[in-house]
């Protein structure tokens, strides 16, 4: 049986990749993907713990996370479309009109 540590390391690596993607990339689509990556890294951790401790709670929580992620993507994509329509660009660095 593959020890829990391995799953958690993978999960951590995936989360770190997601973080880096959010921080570094300027394309909102990529950022969204990175956010999905972080969510799924969390899902992986949930599932790994669920199996290791033999309780179903983590697996059920993963379903919720996936649902929320789907909803989030739907809203986020709609926002990106509207922003593109108004600014003819989807570069996040150009979306700075709220700066102080």
């Amino acid at each position: 049986m593959i020890p829990l540590t391995y799953y958690l390391v993978i999960s951590a690596i995936l989360f770190a990749l997601g973080v880096l993607g959010v921080l570094i990339r300027r394309n909102p689509l990529i950022i969204f993907m990175s956010v999905e990556l972080m969510l799924n890294a969390a899902n992986l951790a949930f599932v790994a713990f669920s199996r290791a401790f033999n309780v179903l709670n983590g697996q059920i929580f993963v379903f919720f996370v996936m649902t929320v992620a789907a909803a989030e993507v739907a809203v986020g994509l709609a926002l990106i479309v509207v922003i593109f329509r108004t600014k003819h660009s989807i570069d996040v660095d150009q979306m700075n009109s709220l700066k102080g």
């Binding site: 921080l23 570094i24 996040v92 709220l98 700066k99 102080g100």
Partner: peptide
């Protein structure tokens, strides 16, 4: 302090991180 509010989403994200 207003300079922190630079409008770049990524920098906010970095701050959150």
């Amino acid at each position: 302090l207003r300079r922190l509010q630079n409008g770049f989403v990524r920098s906010y994200a970095l701050a959150v991180l």
